[in-house]
Design a protein around this nucleic acid. Structure first.
Length: 832
RNA sequence: GCGAGGAUGGCGAAAUUGGUAGACGCACCAGCCUUAGGAGCUGGCGGUUAACACCUUGGGGGUUCGAGUCCCCCUCCUCGCACCA
């Protein structure tokens, strides 16, 4: 460490900055008022070249440090040799043609701050970033603008890369990836084959959600209230042969493991609800098996309802009712899911037959209605109008008997031998009694369905399967991967339900890997969510094309230490990633069965109180702000908006306050002197700030960390005080995760060599924070009446005596106090 | 309907265990400096009041010496799921 030179600004600042020649004034710069460059950047212009010191000029300064980081490999992790590996992951973006969204920047900056902080704690941080570039989104956009996605995506990626680099992220770009790279999706196909080997992949003709606009099958998760989540079209039912992953077999494990994960509680709750475990019973009403979670209400069951698709409908339909039932089933099959799933008007038809209620022995009618879903439970229910709103509504609509109530509060009534039992006890007793007669069994149902991964589209990894007339379904041998996605021009999907790849027999006709006879490739591609369900395993292995992931590297770096992303992926992506990880674990390929040790969801950025949208024209373009204010200011402002996990309101005027803070930091270092006398108040504040910032960053409370640094700055610069060098040096380190370029520059100005991110995070002296005197609050009857400065170890009697000596407090106290509450070092409450 | 989260000055927001409500910032006001100021510095800034004081964290009740924080009821907002038996 060499002393700060106290000479002219030029030598102190290494001649880096020259005054901005073209200071932007007026409105001719085309930017809004709030976006205009601060006037003071013009200081040091030709008018006063020598008196006014070099200003903080972020644009050139940031370019300098971007170049230096790239040159020195500052952000590159030592994958094979890192001593204390720390994997800080953020969800990779879809590289849209519109460029980086401010929401991406917000999320990435939040991760970057945490990553840089961890590095300054001495960890070897690996922070990769890639692109989730396959999928309907790209394909639809490509169709819209008439460009091939294979041409569009690399362009978008180049633009994203440029924007991301300008954001100053500590990303290891030597290990980036795009899901569209054959070197990547080769292994996506390999993952498919591993699941196949585990017997977790099956093909079945299934009623699927078909989007008539996007002309593709959608996963249940992609259907929102009966409509396509992407385009909003009403989803139709179709029957197609689809590949499924048996994620439902992992329901219980996916649910149970949640308890031990360090994830946001909201995310865990969303997963629990999605898995939707419900414990109940299957009960036989003669030949019909119903599922119920309320076997205790069986004495109130007055009819049975079958889903229209239920295979037993025919068998239970009488001759008189056959025509009506067939007509109803036909109508129901065409009925779109929106009205079926959201309409409250219940439709249905009687089968004309009856079955026996196994608890009462009564004959009760069997009906068919589409308010009962074939996909859930057994596709049949016992209806209890007295205790179920839907059943009641149906019963009213069709004038079915609305039988007796069988509960009074928590106790069963009119329930035969079970009358008097509590609901809890009755559930068990009734199921037990019926089970003894082979008429019931306790079962657990999950809402989670198998994952349909087939997409009748072009822009995705071809599913590595070959159909041979002789050998049947043959998985593509691993040595033959990747199955390359061919470059075709007519990639537009049609209404056939068959992938565009099926139009290219030169592609899909291949020899069977087993018997060499001509066979056909599967022409569907896989769901984008498969691409993203394992990408975290690939990052540390990028460059190694002989395996998907090397066991030693994987053991060293995974599971991911911390993961940050949007809560819109709370269910889909995070659940699928957990599933794939469990399967790879069970196959003996990795040693852990949960991919993300810690997950935090970031919040959303709105603008001036409203959601950002292209149609409203209020989208924040990061480029413009970085241009006008610098990436450091932009980053710090994004983090200052509000709590990271809640998001915040981007208000154009607010950014100036953050810029002012960084300007003052610049000036403080410039003006600092080794000769300034130590100041106890400043020292105390510094150490309190070191503690505060160090506490806040790990809990992602970035807004309060920044506020604390601002407070310190206010103390440091009070009345234009000249700071001591040591006082600013620590502050530069605290600011570094937020404003990395500026911090590097100031660190260099302060005489250090090497990156500031290899310096050790400053420590605080607890002794300095434990002062001899403390302020305690004095209350009378709980109302604040004053405060006292007492010694740290002052007891109740001393504090009381001091309080009574203070007339402004004593005047509220008449007579003898009834009670005195004393919290040492905190407060004295006199109750009269 | 179910689930989760939220409501604090003109605005964005703080308040880590129940213990000074409004830190920090924006905007605004005043002063200093200045040829000039969209720079910098200093001070002010929830409401009522001349003042003492009183009121104030969506509304109402409660627990407590003391409640933004805990409990009960209600209103509104955001997000997720939704005929899941």
């Amino acid at each position: 460490m060499r002393p700060t030179p106290i000479v002219g600004p030029d030598s102190r600042f290494g001649g880096l900055t020259t005054a901005t020649a073209s200071c932007l004034r007026g409105n001719d710069d085309g930017l809004s008022g709030a976006m205009r460059r601060p006037y003071f950047e013009c200081m040091g212009s030709a008018d006063h070249p020598s008196e006014i010191p070099a200003p903080y000029e972020p644009v050139s300064l940031e370019a300098k440090w971007r170049a230096r980081w790239a040159e020195l490999g500052t952000n590159v992790a030592d994958i094979p040799n890192a001593a204390r590996p720390y994997y800080a992951l953020m969800m990779f973006p879809y590289p849209s043609a519109e460029g980086l969204h401010v929401g991406n920047m917000f999320a990435f900056t939040g991760n970057d701050i945490f990553a840089r902080f961890q590095r300054m704690q001495g960890l070897s941080v690996f922070q990769p970033l890639g692109y989730d570039a396959f999928g309907i989104h790209s394909e639809n956009y490509a169709l819209k603008v008439g460009v091939h996605p294979a041409e569009m995506i690399p362009r978008n990626i180049a633009n994203f890369r440029r924007q991301l680099e300008r954001g100053g992220l500590m990303v290891d770009w030597t290990r980036s990836l795009s899901t569209t790279d054959p070197e990547y999706y080769r292994w996506t196909q390999w993952v498919f084959l591993q699941l196949y080997k585990q017997g977790l992949v099956h093909k079945k003709a299934a009623a699927v959600n078909w989007c008539p606009t996007d002309k593709t099958v959608l996963a249940n998760e992609q259907v929102v209230a009966g409509a396509c989540e992407r385009c909003g079209s009403v989803v139709e039912q179709r029957f197609l042969e689809q590949w499924f992953f048996a994620i439902s077999r992992y329901s219980e494990r996916l649910l149970a493991n949640l308890d031990s994960l360090d994830w946001s509680e909201t995310t865990k709750t969303a997963q629990r609800n999605w898995i939707g475990k419900s414990e109940g019973a299957e009960i036989w009403f003669d030949g019909i098996k119903v599922f119920t979670t309320r076997p205790d209400t069986i004495f109130g069951a007055t009819y049975v309802v079958l889903a229209p698709e239920h295979p037993l409908v025919d068998a239970h339909t009488t001759e008189e009712q056959r025509a009506a039932v067939d007509e109803y089933r036909e109508r129901a099959s065409r009925r779109d899911l929106v009205s079926r799933k959201t309409s409250k008007d219940k439709t249905g038809v009687s089968t004309g037959s009856t079955v026996t209620n196994p608890a009462t022995g009564e004959q009760i009618p069997v009906w068919v209605s589409d308010y009962v879903l074939m996909e859930y439970g057994s596709g049949a229910i016992m209806a209890v109008p007295a205790h179920d709103e839907r059943d009641l509504e149906f019963a009213h609509g069709f004038e079915l008997p609305v039988k007796k109530v069988v509960h009074e509060d928590d106790t069963l009534i009119e329930s035969g031998e079970f009358t008097g039992l509590t609901v809890h006890d009755a559930k068990r007793a009734i199921v037990g009694s019926l089970a003894a007669k082979d008429k019931a069994a306790a079962v657990t149902n999950y809402r989670l369905h198998d994952w349909c991964i087939s997409r009748q589209r072009y822009w995705g990894p071809p599913i590595p399967i070959i159909y041979c007339d002789d050998c049947g379904v043959v998985p593509v041998p691993e040595k033959d991967l990747p199955v390359l996605l061919p470059m075709i021009e007519d990639f537009k999907p049609d209404d056939s339900g068959i992938s565009p790849l099926a139009r290219h027999d030169e592609w899909y006709r291949v020899p069977c890997p087993t018997c060499a006879k001509m066979a056909r490739r599967e022409t569907d591609v896989s769901d984008t969510f498969l691409d993203s369900a394992w990408y975290f395993l690939r990052y540390p292995n990028v460059g190694n094309d002989s395996v998907a992931f090397d066991p030693d590297v994987t053991k060293k770096w995974l599971p991911v230490d911390s993961y940050i992303g949007g809560n819109e992926h709370a269910v889909l992506h995070l659940l699928y990633s957990r599933f794939v990880t469990m399967v790879l674990h069970d196959a003996g390929l990795i040693e852990f069965d949960e991919p993300f040790t810690k997950f935090r969801a970031h919040g959303l950025i709105i603008r001036e109180g409203a959601k950002m949208s292209k149609s409203k024209g209020n989208v924040v373009n990061p480029d413009e702000y970085i241009e006008a204010w610098g990436a450091d200011t932009f980053r710090t402002y994004l983090m200052f908006l509000g709590p990271f996990e809640e998001g915040g309101d981007f208000r154009d005027k607010g950014i100036s306050g953050v810029r002012r803070f960084l300007d003052r930091l610049w000036a403080s270092v410039r003006d600092s002197s080794p000769d300034t006398a130590p100041d106890a108040e400043v020292d105390r504040k510094l150490h309190a700030t070191i503690r505060k910032v160090g506490d806040d960053i790990p809990r992602l409370s970035y807004n309060t960390a920044i506020a604390a640094m601002m407070e310190y700055m206010n103390v440091l610069r009070k009345n234009d005080r000249v700071p001591r060098r040591a006082e600013v040096e620590s502050l530069v380190q605290l600011v570094a995760p937020f404003a990395p370029h500026l911090a590097e520059e100031l660190w260099e100005q302060l005489g250090h060599s090497g990156t500031i991110f290899d310096s050790a995070w400053p420590t605080f002296d607890p002794a300095l924070l434990a002062t001899d005197d403390v302020d305690i609050v004095v209350q009378v009857n709980g109302k604040m009446r004053g405060r006292l400065r007492v010694t740290r170890d002052a007891d109740e009697s001393i504090a009381h005596a001091l309080a009574m000596a203070d007339t402004s407090i004593a005047k509220f106290v008449s007579g003898t106090p009834r009670k005195i509450i004393f919290v040492p070092g905190r407060l004295l409450n006199i109750v009269v």
